[in-house]
Write a protein that binds this DNA or RNA. Sequence first.
DNA 1: AATCGGTTCAACCGCGGTCCT
DNA 2: TAGGACCGCGGTTGAACCGAT
Length: 505
Amino acid sequence: MSMNSANDERMMLNNDPDSPSVDDANSGGNVGGNGSLKKGPWTSAEDAILVEYVTKHGEGNWNAVQKHSGLARCGKSCRLRWANHLRPDLRKGAFTQEEERRIIELHAKMGNKWARMAAELPGRTDNEIKNYWNTRIKRRQRAGLPIYPPDICLQASNENQESDDMNAFSSGHDVHHPDFMPMNNFEIPEFKAFQINPQLYPQELLDFSSNSLLNIPASSLLAQGPHSPYPNKRIRGSESLFPGLSTDIGNVIPDGSQYHNDGSVQIAQPFMLSSAYDHNSTSNHGSSSSVLPGSHAVLNGNTSSSEPTWAMKPELPSLQTQTGCWGPPSSPLPSLESVDTLIQTPPIENTQSCNLSPRNSGLLDAVLYESQTIKNSNNSSRQHDLFDTSSEDLHETEWGAYSEPISPLGPSSSSVFSEGTSLDEPKITRGYRVEESTDLFPMQYDDRVETQNEMIYSRPDFLLASNYFVTNDQTRFSGKVDTSATSSTQGYGHDSCSSNAMSSV
DNA sequence: AATCGGTTCAACCGCGGTCCT
DNA sequence: TAGGACCGCGGTTGAACCGAT
């Protein structure tokens, strides 16, 4: 989209050969038939032509617009322009409070069904609503403000309850709208003192895990199954937070898992303030050990089943589909060409933590996979060094490293994200930093808390934990990775490879 | 004034569904 | 009934804008 208005009219009238490829413009079957079709911003002249055409012939048959009016636009583009901007019944301007509330209500009920929502809001377009949601609403979320008022949550929850009961194993979007799923509340009971029962696993597995389980991203231990709030959905690109990054981090950063001498492994509760990185908080959260840091539950004493679940999810890159990382049990390996290949990542979809049934133990899968991965690693020794560090030391060490205020990635940062490094580059994640922490995690929005946030978000356990909430919504991860080599992870998550890889093998 | 980074929003893309032949 | 054309939807992208530095 590099055309300016000056060129637009000329191109429109002349079918400028320099205009973008026809292929692109014609995607979706809208073949113009006579060469180049223009893309990019519409000019008023084009608008006039389109309006005139529609006035004469009515809506529909959009491909005919190009044929009959000479407008060098594909039908699709015409329809969009008409629907979003030229329709006479359009209501321009900011959303009113009433409209905003309606949007929230509708979203609570429908999820990302923008068109359906638009149908309920006369004069508003799906695109408008979508953009609105993705900006203002999520800004609210980032600010730690509830998106869904409790009554709306309750209402939607009740409305969904019936179908929920009817479809215990179904995960249709409307029914399991992520924002109302238990997972999206701040409490994640599954991670309360999660322990591997030594009796459930072979000793060698446990022995192994005591050496390397830290290397397993906690995300891979997350539940995924019939109760997963993330229904299977066609995986598309850019559906993971930090496409690959989080898992990479998870592979390298000690996630706060606790080793026990008896061979059991206590998986850290990554969102807990009582994580090992925060010694002070440990004693303060006896009753809220499963409460996420920064959650309202923590700060406000509001456990809020009606809490807007957005509030606990870090800002995500375009993850509209719920599958994100937790898609079907097919177990993708990270794409080798993606930036996130640096570290072998256990197949996330394949791993489950909460449903530790013998039949379907995600943890087991994760461990086995990790075992295989490590075996294949040529440089396992270096990795081992990392994990030989006692967890306490490691926490301190790592935390210190993460506390580096500036350019924590240091010399290895580029190698992390631009080269296909692997397990053998533990230091690469050091200094992985998230800025704009308030974008990532909701807290009471004041300066003091913001400072807290900065600390929390830059902590490896948070970074790792962020992987848990790779969910459906097309959100933009506004917090950015402090690295010049992560352009693909900044903003909207261009790295479709990684997300595809994670979900498609 | 220049630069940078974040936000907004118009437009594009790909896919699935429906209609038509 | 199959296959192609068309339409609509949801997600994604990138340029413009804006505020901070």
